[in-house]
């Protein structure tokens, strides 16, 4: 229960950074916090009380003692995609900084909302 609420709170903190902060790097940090919150939420949904990792490393481990492997596999995919998104966003920020000499979105014209 507390895991669900904490991960939603992480998502909200990340969204706050995206909505309020003016620095582009801080906005990207906010995006990755949202990412992490969603990963934690998915892992928490797959949790089973007193379950072990879904690996049959020892003889005698039964499938009903294990946590759900499907969310873990999907989160593995999501982490890689999140890494790719962050890298491309940072490279765009480097280019914007080269051009405008600032990271403040209010000082970069044509980017206002």
């Amino acid at each position: 229960m507390i895991y669900y609420i904490t991960s939603i709170l992480l998502v909200l903190i990340g969204m706050y950074a995206v909505l309020v902060k003016k620095n582009l790097i801080k906005i990207v940090i906010g995006l990755s916090i949202v990412d992490n919150g969603i990963h934690l939420l998915l892992i928490a949904i797959g949790y089973v009380k007193n379950g072990t990792a879904p690996i049959f490393s020892k003889a005698g481990l039964q499938p009903n003692q294990m946590v759900d492997p499907v969310p873990q596999a999907l989160v593995l995919t999501a982490i890689v995609i999140g890494l790719a998104v962050t890298a491309v966003a940072l490279s765009l920020i480097i280019r914007l900084y080269d051009h405008h000499k600032t990271l403040n979105i209010n000082k970069i014209r044509k980017l206002k909302w």
């Binding site: 669900y4 609420i5 949790y47 089973v48 009903n64």
Partner: peptide, 11 residues
Amino acid sequence: TILKIPFGEGV
């Protein structure tokens, strides 16, 4: 919405 998902039950 999320709290309607049961937590920690079997797979």
